[in-house]
C-alpha cells in the first residue's frame, strides 16, 4: 500500500481523453518518476493530485484520505507540497520571508489572525527557517529581494520552501524544464542531496530522461493518457514499449 494511491482515474476535456484508467501507487520514502512524451497526460495527472482538476471518475487517496474535491491549501495541509515548472516564489518578499510563510502555514494552519504579533517572538520558526537556508546554501542571501535572484536560486528557494514544511509527499512538476545542462545537473545534485539527508517521498513529473534515470527509484511511463509500464529504472531502459512510445514520437 503506497502513500499515494491513484485508482481508475479518467479525465476528459471535451472530445479529448486526457487520462484513461490511470492507476498509480507511490511508495513511502521512494522517488517515483512519471515520464512520457508530450501530451501523455503528465500535467493533467499532476493537477488531479493537487486539487486543480477533479477527475471524471476514479479515486486519488493520499495517506488513507481522498484528495478529490479539496482545495489546494487543504491538500497542502494534508502533507503534499508542490514545486512548479517555473519557480513560483513570493518575488516581492525577501528570501527569509519566503521561507517563513510555509513555516507559519505548517504551524498555524490555513488561517490565523496574527495581526499584532511580532516576529521577535517567533524565534523557533526563524531558527527553523535559518536551518533550511543553511541546508540549501542560501543563508547569505537571507535578506535579498527574491525576485532579483537567478533562476537557479529561485528554484533552490522554492525547494527550500517546500522542504521546510516537512511534506509527506513532494510533487515536482518538470523541475528542470527549460534549463541549460549545467542548471539541470545542479538541480539533480540538489535533489539527490535532499534525498540523502532525510526520509522523503518524491513524485517527479519529467520529460528529461537524464534527470529521471539519475534520481528515480521507480518509474511509471505514461503514453496517450494511460500508464504503459511501471518498473525500476534498469528495466525501463530496455523496455520495447517505452522505446516505441518515445521513438514513435521522435519519428514523426
Amino acid at each position: 500500500m503506497g502513500i499515494l494511491e491513484v485508482k481508475g482515474v479518467n479525465k476528459r476535456f471535451g472530445g479529448l481523453k486526457a487520462l484513461s484508467d490511470v492507476n498509480l501507487s507511490v511508495r513511502e520514502n521512494t522517488v517515483h518518476a512519471i515520464i512520457g512524451p508530450n501530451g501523455a497526460g503528465k500535467s493533467t495527472l499532476l493537477n488531479c493530485l493537487v486539487g486543480k482538476l477533479i477527475p471524471d471518475t476514479g479515486s486519488v487517496m493520499f495517506d488513507g484520505q481522498s484528495v478529490l474535491g479539496r482545495k489546494p491549501h487543504e491538500i497542502n495541509q494534508m502533507g503534499i507540497s508542490r514545486v512548479f515548472q517555473t519557480p513560483e516564489i513570493f518575488g516581492d518578499l525577501t528570501v527569509m520571508e519566503n521561507i517563513l510563510i510555509p513555516c507559519f502555514a505548517r504551524r498555524d494552519g490555513a488561517f490565523r489572525l496574527h495581526a499584532f504579533e511580532n516576529f521577535a517572538h517567533e524565534k523557533d520558526l526563524v531558527e527553523k527557517a535559518e536551518a533550511i537556508l543553511v541546508d540549501v546554501n542560501m543563508i547569505d542571501k537571507r535578506n535579498m529581494h527574491s525576485a532579483s535572484m537567478s533562476r537557479g536560486d529561485k528554484r533552490r528557494l522554492e525547494m527550500a520552501m517546500c522542504l521546510v514544511q516537512e511534506p509527506k509527499l513532494l510533487l515536482l512538476d518538470e523541475p528542470t524544464a527549460g534549463m541549460a545542462r549545467a542548471d539541470t545537473n545542479n538541480t539533480i545534485d540538489l535533489l539527490r542531496d535532499i534525498k540523502s539527508k532525510r526520509d522523503i517521498t518524491m513524485c517527479i513529473i519529467e520529460h528529461d530522461m537524464h534527470v529521471v534515470f539519475s534520481l528515480a527509484d521507480r518509474i511509471t511511463v505514461l503514453a496517450q493518457g494511460t500508464p504503459l509500464v511501471e518498473d525500476e529504472p534498469e528495466n525501463i531502459k530496455g523496455n520495447p514499449k517505452v522505446q516505441e512510445a518515445y521513438l514513435g514520437e521522435a519519428a514523426h
Binding site: V50, K71, P72, H73, N76, Q77, S81, R82, F84, E88, I89, F90, G91, D92, L93, E97, L100, I101, P102, F104, A105, R106, G109, A110, F111, M161, Q165
Partner: peptide, 19 residues
C-alpha cells in the same frame, strides 16, 4: 507578511497551505 504574499503570488500562497 501574508497580505504582502497575496499581492506577490496568490497561487504560491494557496499551494503553501494558506487560505
Amino acid at each position: 507578511m501574508m497580505l504582502r504574499a497575496i499581492k506577490s503570488n496568490q497561487q504560491r500562497l494557496n499551494y503553501t497551505g494558506l487560505n
